[in-house]
Computed example of a mutant assay.
Amino acid sequence: MEIFDADATARALPFDALIEQMQALFANGLTAPDRHHHTMQMQDKADATLLLMPAWTEQIGCVKVVTATPGNSARSLPAIAGSVLVFDRATGAHLALIDGAVATARRTAAASALGARYLAREDAKHLLIIGAGKVAAQLTDAFRAVRPIETVRIWDLFPQAAEALAASLRSRGWDAQAVSDLSQAVPQADIISAATLATEPLLMGEWLRPGQHVDLIGAFTPAMREADDHSLQRGRLFVDTKFATIEAGELKTPLETGAIAPSDILGDLYALAQGKATRERRDEITLFKSVGNAVMDLAAAITATRKAEEEPHV
């Protein structure tokens, strides 16, 4: 069984190949079970959570195992740990173990780029990233795989984090700058991608202008929000999968209050990849909301193991 550490996982998941593999799985209609949640009770500390996300084709399968342990903050340890186990479908033999944190960050960014392939204008060059974490750091390369991104601006609740990410991107040749005023930065962007842990909206609909594409990544529980109701009402809405309407506060709460209706959600990655939905006008605002699913993990597993087979062994 091959072991991919963090660096090896990143090298094995180039965005062009990962996006193409993800598109193929969604275009073929591959589905996966919803993720399994298991609460693990802890003594004198917040309960931990075990998440299991399986998916498979006729040839290959994987399961991502994630543990969320809030008490780790007191131990100066990461709260989230994860791995992706890849197995052969015919024999059940374990083929590879992939770093779960890196694989998740890259497949999440790849899913956003796949959505943008159909929903962002083809001349989109200016990217605004809201957030400066692990997923945010992947977004410039992911979006450039599908659109001619030239300018990157970054806003974060902690300005030093935004500047650190901007500096890292500049060291790689990007035109990247941190910004302090989100209300001024939003109208200038062609693509706005939010990857935060916000529980209250950061993006306001009144800031948006015609022709933009909004990509919302961070709100992956019912208690989280990155964009206000007006943002949702101004945009043509799309999701990665229907599960997003249940899992994400971004959609679950507005659907419950009547701010948006189920009919406002016009398609998912299956519809987009199968050519059943797309951007219709240059001046419309499109909004893509993702929460992630195991089909994306499987795309990463296939891409990584295929690339490993192609590379020469010394």
Rank of each mutant, 00 (worst) to 15 (best):
M1T: 13
L13V: 09
M22S: 13
F26C: 01
N28V: 02
A32R: 07
Q41C: 07
A48T: 04
T57V: 11
C62D: 09
T67P: 12
T67K: 09
T67F: 08
A68H: 13
P70K: 00
A74L: 13
A79Y: 01
I80Y: 14
H94P: 13
L95M: 08
A96H: 10
L97W: 00
I98F: 13
G100H: 08
A101E: 15
V102Q: 14
A105W: 10
R106P: 14
S112M: 06
Y118Q: 03
R121Y: 09
A124Y: 11
H126T: 14
L127V: 08
L128M: 08
A132G: 11
P148T: 07
D156K: 01
Q160L: 13
A162I: 02
A164T: 14
A164Y: 08
A164D: 12
L165G: 06
D175K: 14
A176Y: 07
A176D: 13
Q177A: 15
L182M: 03
Q188N: 13
A189C: 11
A195I: 02
A198L: 03
P201Y: 01
L202R: 00
G205K: 01
R209C: 05
F220A: 14
A223S: 08
A227L: 04
D228R: 01
D229P: 05
H230G: 04
S231Q: 00
V239W: 01
F243M: 14
T245C: 15
T253H: 09
L255F: 00
A259C: 04
A261T: 11
G275D: 04
A277D: 05
E280H: 09
E284D: 06
E284T: 03
V291F: 11
D297V: 06
A299W: 10
A304Q: 09
E309T: 08
E311Y: 08
